[in-house]
Design a binder for these strands. Structure first.
Lengths: 127, 127
DNA sequence: ATTAAGTACCTTGCAACGCATAGTACTAAA
DNA sequence: TTTAGTACTATGCGTTGCAAGGTACTTAAT
């Protein structure tokens, strides 16, 4: 048995919690970003701030590639707008396809929450 | 502009729904598996079946490495048990650390659901 | 005895994604 | 002209879900 492929150490569960929370966030970001853009056009830094308000911390290295992906898929458009206090801002906007897609995402999200909660509940009955 | 790094095509939102749902599931599997094991020891095939009951489809190629990871981190233990209808089964069991970790995961999950739902709700007010 | 079918576990290689890091560029004040 | 603040972009790494293929044990049929 080689031990070269596994960096996991038996470090107890406590230190892993932050990592796990990060993991759980995966894939939900799309939904949140599209939801934010439903409120109105926004530029990346603004999006990051709004996510922070709801305890979802996202960094630039995550957001920018994701926005580009969503744009390339036709879910988002953008326009440049001058700023009086710095470089120009890239305002992203939901397309019609994006809005339609967001509705599907919301449905998927609701189903997921339901499925996971069911699993959790079953466990709680059998302690 | 090179088009070599991007496999996304503007295919509309509809076909992407399955992919997005898969993405959203990421990271939540740990929580679900540990929750199932809280109900009692179980072997992989059994775990897959139980997940299927709650609409969370997971395949072997996903589950086995994940169980190994959880075992290596000390969250799970296992024992072999004979079967009258096939090869022996590997029953996994929550360790004490695993139970403690599960509680943290459940908390993280609840917080995530809350944060995401808040974001979604804000969007719905501004249509 | 050999084959087939059912059950169960395991490995390998790929692709996607989040993120840390580093870099570029514009404005304004010191 | 240097410093600070704001904003967008690119690169490379590690983790993870998954498809695909493989091994092995049991029972029943040929």
């Amino acid at each position: 048995m080689g031990n070269s492929e596994n960096t996991d150490k038996p470090d107890g569960g406590v230190e892993r919690a932050a990592t796990a929370q990060a993991q759980m966030r995966k894939g939900v970001l799309e939904l949140c970003i599209l939801s934010i853009l439903l409120q109105g056009d926004a530029y990346p830094t603004e999006i990051i701030d709004k996510l922070k308000d709801t305890k979802l911390v996202v960094v630039e290295g995550t957001l920018y590639p994701l926005l580009t992906r969503l744009k390339n898929t036709g879910l988002l458009g953008y326009r440049w707008e001058e700023s009086t206090s710095g470089p120009p801002r890239k305002y992203y906007k939901l397309t019609e396809i994006g809005e339609q897609y967001l509705k599907e995402l919301q449905l998927s999200w609701a189903e997921l929450v339901d499925a996971v909660n069911k699993t959790i509940e079953k466990g709680k009955n059998n302690i």
